[in-house]
Design a protein around this nucleic acid. Structure first.
Lengths: 161, 161
DNA sequence: CAATGTTATATAACTAGTAATGTAGTTGGA
DNA sequence: TCCAACTACATTACTAGTTATATAACATTG
């Protein structure tokens, strides 16, 4: 067993450490969704959730809402249109803009996720880090240790919160 | 300006949010290193730092030390060998293992980074999040807001800490 | 009202991670 | 002792982000 140097280096490697932790959380979340039969990648749901929450958006607005660059948004929107979850049509007043909205199937999926999948994920993440406090590096260590002890998909017991 | 839904969704999208934040921190760190003339990618330094700290390691041990998978380590080691920063030779007792160590040039680079670059990064990150406390989501919001107000490369003033 | 500039999206090439699988070297038991 | 299983690393194909740039539509202005 070799020392985790990214953890040992503290603030110097914080970006690497945080990114790694995010990847780990996303992978665990994906496992919960796979178990529950959710048919998409974890990374695609924020797009559906954004349109559900904010209403039809352009590609650029979607990129901003989910916090990635425009080319990334263009690609994921294309995938979700291909999968039949989103619809995109040119704005009537400005042919450059594409207005993205939920398809019937997309709406059905969001409704199912809202009732079955998302509460489970929220409760698992809350179980992992809902009660943390104190300095950032200590909380990160607690989350890493917590995931090692019991990954997210074994924390989804209660659907409360 | 569109709402940041990943931030709004709280624990549900924590993995996405944390990963995004890590990418942002790494990108800012890269800018500091570029300004200071550091010749590598931010993602490559943990490998050099691991070998510097722990001594010669096999590819598998390096993967464990920096917290990625073995194929990722194989690739980055190959790049750093190509760049002349690392040397790899088969272990005398077990031809399967490759022992990775710092080249002369790699040692020189680590020494320069230790004295010039790493303290600057540490101080910038400490300036951003060294004094945070409280619940995780609040700290994440503070870091995001802090980066928006002044990215890391404009926080590297003092080289203390 | 045409030329020029700007904006919105698309495309291309790259980075850095992943999982699955291949291959060569080592080891242990019949 | 040799074959089967295991181990360490390499390879391949994929994911999801990035930057840089191209294209097409709209806006401005001389």
């Amino acid at each position: 067993m070799v020392e985790d140097v990214v953890r040992s280096f503290g603030f110097l490697t914080l970006g690497t450490r945080i990114k790694r932790l995010g990847e780990r959380l996303q992978a665990d979340t994906q496992r919960i969704m796979d178990e529950l039969g959710a048919p998409l990648q974890a990374s695609q749901y924020p797009f559906l959730a954004a349109v559900d929450r904010l209403g039809p958006l352009t590609v650029g607005e979607l990129a901003e809402a989910v916090g990635i660059t425009q080319p990334g948004a263009t690609r994921t929107v294309a995938q979700l249109v291909e999968l039949g979850m989103l619809e995109a049509k040119a704005a009537p007043d400005d042919q450059r803009r594409r207005i993205v909205s939920l398809s019937r199937e997309g709406k059905r999926l969001v409704a199912a996720a809202k009732s079955d999948v998302w509460p489970r994920i929220r409760s698992a993440v809350a179980d992992l880090c809902g009660n943390l406090d104190g300095p950032l590096l200590d909380q990160l260590a607690a989350i890493e240790d917590g995931l090692a002890a019991a990954p997210l998909d074994r924390r989804a017991g209660k659907v409360t919160l």
